[in-house]
């Protein structure tokens, strides 16, 4: 564990929490893409199957359980409790365009042809593009509430910090995971345009439009 990894994980945790709190406090999930949230839940469900087979650390186990519960909790709030506020007309990104290529890629480019390993690879590839329905929704409606912007920023910062963590780990431990690094870079790049708008607009108190 290094500082980049820790802050990255905390940023991820923070992103999920502000999203849940936003929905809970405003009793509304307007502006949030349910499709991205389903993809994230699928990412966690396929990546954290090793909860049942391997123990890594208490930190690792607790974080995984938190991510799983909170992502399914978000889906429950969006599709059941505050269903009426879900902006489905603007949430129209075709997720099969992500799921199918990601499934094929994970079957071809993986560390080992093994069920757990392939599902892990699938989750890494899927995570890198899972935010696209949300970004698509923001571009379609032409704006995002500040809180949604903070959520996106924290979520993007998490993977960016992981890249610093991988550079650090490469020099200190010789650790290098090509699949995670490439997918992590793709994931971070997808947020770049948003980061720019966030810094130039949202931090100056303007709405993201």
């Amino acid at each position: 564990m290094n500082i980049f990894r820790l802050i990255g994980d905390l940023s991820h945790l923070f992103a999920i929490l502000i999203l849940l709190l936003k929905i809970w406090k405003t009793r509304s999930c307007a502006g949030i893409s349910g499709r991205s949230q389903i993809l994230f839940a699928l990412v966690f469900a396929t990546r954290y199957l090793d909860l049942f087979t391997h123990f890594i650390s208490l930190y690792n186990t607790l974080m995984k359980i938190f991510y799983l519960c909170s992502s399914f909790g978000t889906i429950y709030l969006m599709y059941v409790k505050f269903k009426a506020t879900y902006d489905r007309n603007h949430d129209t990104f075709r997720v099969e365009f992500l799921l199918i290529p990601v499934a094929i890629l994970s079957l071809i480019f993986n560390h080992e042809f093994d069920v757990l390993e392939i599902l892990w690879t699938f989750s890494i590839y899927l995570e890198s593009v899972a935010i696209l329905p949300q970004l698509f929704m923001v571009s379609k409606t032409g704006e995002a509430e500040s809180i949604t912007s903070h959520y996106l920023f924290a979520l993007g910062a998490y993977r960016g910090l992981y890249i610093l963590n991988w550079i650090y780990r490469y020099y200190t431990e010789g650790f290098f995971d090509l699949i995670a690094v490439i997918a992590g870079i793709v994931q971070t790049v997808l947020y770049c345009d948003f980061f720019y708008l966030y810094i130039t607009k949202v931090l100056k108190g303007k709405r993201l439009t």
């Binding site: 090793d50 890594i56 690792n60 974080m63 995984k64 560390h111 080992e112 390993e117 992981y162 963590n165």
Partner: peptide
């Protein structure tokens, strides 16, 4: 048989 590569990252 190769051992499963532990994933310590989230």
């Amino acid at each position: 048989e190769k051992q499963y590569q532990l994933k310590d990252e989230l």
